[in-house]
């Protein structure tokens, strides 16, 4: 059963929804665990979230290349919306940017926001290209 990416929601069952949810829980737990390991070392730059978002985009690029080649199915949602949706985060990024601006570190806030966008996009393209070469 394969379909276009925007059609797969029609095939979701209760069990898919449960698995996607558990995938999100796993991704979030992984992000939290990493954030406890990658501590700020005297730097104001929010490294944990930055690294999580960039690495998550790299993996999603590879996943998207796989489903792009072999057809989309509900398993794509398990990865995109579940695992990597739970792992990467926009809300923490937004609050960290606000916190930097609130501390009058405007340059750092702008640099964090702009580099997050370009680094995640570059990582996603890299993951997509690398997985495309392998398959």
């Amino acid at each position: 059963m394969t379909a276009a990416v925007t059609e797969i929601h029609q095939y979701l069952t209760f069990w898919h929804v449960l698995w996607i949810g558990l995938g999100g829980g796993f991704g979030a737990a992984l992000r939290f665990s990493l954030s406890q390991v990658v501590r700020h070392k005297g730097s104001h730059w929010p490294w944990p979230t930055w690294l999580v978002n960039v690495s998550g985009a790299l993996v999603l690029g590879a996943i998207a290349a796989y489903f792009n080649d072999f057809g989309y199915e509900p398993a794509f949602f398990f990865w995109e919306l579940g695992i990597l949706g739970g792992y990467t985060t926009m809300s923490t990024f937004a609050v960290e940017t606000v916190a930097l601006a609130h501390q009058r570190r405007i340059g750092l806030a702008l640099g964090y926001a702009i580099s997050s966008v370009f680094a995640t996009l570059a990582a996603l393209m890299l993951g997509f290209t690398l997985a495309g070469l392998l398959s």
């Binding site: 999100g24 829980g25 991704g27 979030a28 737990a29 992000r31 939290f32 978002n53 998550g56 985009a57 993996v59 999603l60 690029g61 998207a64 995109e80 919306l81 990597l84 949706g85 739970g86 792992y87 990467t88 985060t89 926009m90 809300s91 923490t92 990024f93 997050s116 995640t120 996009l121 990582a123 996603l124 393209m125 997509f128």
Partner: peptide, 23 residues
Amino acid sequence: WLLLGVGGLGAFTTFSAMALDTF
């Protein structure tokens, strides 16, 4: 905070899907 903030809203929002949509 851990339940709703880090877990709930962290997973509700996404950065990777934004990158994929843009791509």
